[in-house]
Design a protein around this nucleic acid. Structure first.
Lengths: 234, 234
DNA sequence: AGTTATTGTCTCATTTTGTGACAATAATAA
DNA sequence: TTATTATTGTCACAAAATGAGACAATAACT
C-alpha cells in the first residue's frame, strides 16, 4: 500500500483567468495519451493548509506567487465519482493503479478562481499532462467530469464580485489605461459598456492612481496610465 | 477497525439562522459533559451527495425539509486539527475512541448557512449533545474550534447576498407585514433603515404579493400582509 | 497646416434614492 | 359619537447617481 501523503477524498480545482486579445482565457491541462482536458488541480498534503496547497499548485502551473485567489464553491456530488477516468489517466502514464488506488476513490473538490497577469505566466504542465495552455472561454475543449460546470460557476462568481470589489485590475499589468480596464470589464460581464459612464464611475471610486500618459505611437490623443492604489485586493 | 461509513477528512458545519424578537439567532449544540458549544454539523456518507448530507442533518436538527440553504466557504487550515477536543467529546459520551479513531483525524469542513422560519423549527439535539438551542448572534457562548469565525463569515455572506437576492423572506412566515420584513433586514445588516425608502424599494422589485390587511388589535391603521411571489429563492 | 482617431471632461436628461409631509385608519378614551 | 393615538400607505420635492451625447484637446500621419 502507498505511503499516505495526501488527504484522501479531497481535491481542489482552479480556474485561472487571464486576459489577452480582449478575451478572457483560462488555463487547461491536457493529459498524456488520453485526450482528456481538465482544470489544473491537485491534492492537499497531510500537514498543509488547503489554501496553501492551492497556492502551491498555482505556483507550479504559472510560476507566480501572490496571486489573487478566491474560493467559490465545493463540489461534492456522488456523480463526480468516475474511477474509470482516473484509471485511464494513470495507466496512460505507466503508473501502477494498485499503488495509487487512493486516487480512484470518490473525491470532493474545492474550487478556486485566480486572476493573473497573462503576460507574466509561464504555463507549465505537470507529470501527467502534455500541455498547460490558454483557451478562450468561448473556445474551450470538452472538459472531463464536471469541469465545465466549475468554469461556469467561476465566471458567475467573478461577475458577482466585480460589482462589489475592483477585482478586474488583477488581470492587468501594474500600469494600464482606462480603455484596457474597460475591455476587461466587458470581457467579464459579456457586454459593452459606455465609455464616459465607465470612466466617471471608476474615477469616482478613488481606487486609481493616475500616472504619466502612454504614447503608443498612434495618431490620436494619448491616454493616461493608471495603477491600482491598494495592494492585493482581497 | 471501524466499518467505514463516512468520507474521511470531510465534515460540514451549518449556521442555521432564525429571526425572533427582532433579533437574528442561530442554533447551537451543547455536547454532553464537556461544556463545548458547537455549530450543528456532520459527515458525508460514502454514497451521498454533499448537499444531501447537509439537508439530512438540517432535517434532524430542525424537523424541516426544503430549507433555504447556501454553501459559503470551506475551511481547510491545519490549525483546525485539534484531536484532543474530539477525543474529550467521545470519551465524555462513553465511546471507545479506538473504534472511532477516524473522527480524530484532520478534517476540512464545508460551511453552509440556512434561513428558516423560526416558529416552525423543533430544535433537536443529537446523540452526543444535551441541547440544540437558539442563541442571539450578540449573545453566543464561546464556540469550539473555529466555529466563531465560521459564524462571522456566514453573516458576512448573508449580508452580501441580501443586496442581490431577496433572501430575507426565508426568515419569515409565508405572510408578513412590510414592517416585519424591514426588521429582518435591519437585523441582518445591523443598521436602521428608512421606512419609506425601504417600502418603495421592496415594492418596486415586484417580488411581493399583497394580501388582505392584518388587524392586530392595535390602535392604528392596519398594515397589508405580503407574501413572496416566487417559490424557494435559490 | 489639415486630417484622423481617441481621450478627458462637460452638460443635460433620466432614474434612483433620501427625507419629510400628510392624509387614512384601527382601536381607545372621552 | 367624537376626539386621540400610533402606525401605515403614498405623495412631493431634493439630492445623488446614471445614461447619453457633445465637444475641445491632442498624438501622429498626410
Amino acid at each position: 500500500m502507498e505511503v499516505k501523503e495526501y488527504l484522501s477524498h479531497i481535491a481542489y480545482d482552479s480556474v485561472i483567468f487571464g486576459f489577452s486579445g480582449n478575451k478572457l482565457k483560462i488555463l487547461i491541462m491536457k493529459y498524456h495519451n488520453t485526450g482528456f482536458f481538465a482544470l489544473p488541480g491537485g491534492f492537499v498534503r497531510l500537514d498543509e493548509d488547503l489554501n496553501t496547497a492551492v497556492r502551491r499548485g498555482l505556483k507550479e502551473r504559472t510560476g507566480l506567487d501572490n496571486i489573487y485567489l478566491e474560493q467559490f464553491y465545493t463540489f461534492g456530488d456522488v456523480a463526480r465519482f468516475q474511477p474509470g477516468v482516473m484509471k485511464t489517466i494513470l495507466e496512460a502514464n505507466g503508473h501502477d493503479v494498485a499503488e495509487n488506488h487512493w486516487m480512484l476513490d470518490r473525491f470532493i473538490s474545492i474550487a478556486y478562481y485566480a486572476l493573473i497577469n497573462y503576460d507574466k505566466v509561464v504555463p507549465t504542465p505537470d507529470a501527467l499532462s502534455d500541455s498547460c495552455d490558454w483557451y478562450a472561454l468561448d473556445k474551450l475543449p470538452p472538459l472531463m467530469q464536471d469541469h465545465q460546470q466549475i468554469v461556469e460557476k467561476a465566471l458567475q462568481t467573478l461577475r458577482d464580485n466585480l460589482e462589489r470589489k475592483l477585482v478586474g485590475v488583477n488581470l492587468l499589468p501594474p500600469l494600464f489605461t482606462m480603455n484596457e480596464l474597460q475591455k476587461v470589464y466587458e470581457a467579464i460581464l459579456g457586454e459593452k459598456l459606455r465609455r464616459t459612464t465607465f470612466q466617471r464611475k471608476m474615477l469616482s471610486l478613488n481606487f486609481l492612481q493616475r500616472h504619466d500618459k502612454q504614447y503608443s505611437g498612434k495618431a490620436h490623443k494619448a491616454p493616461f496610465l493608471y495603477s491600482f492604489k491598494q495592494e492585493g485586493v482581497e
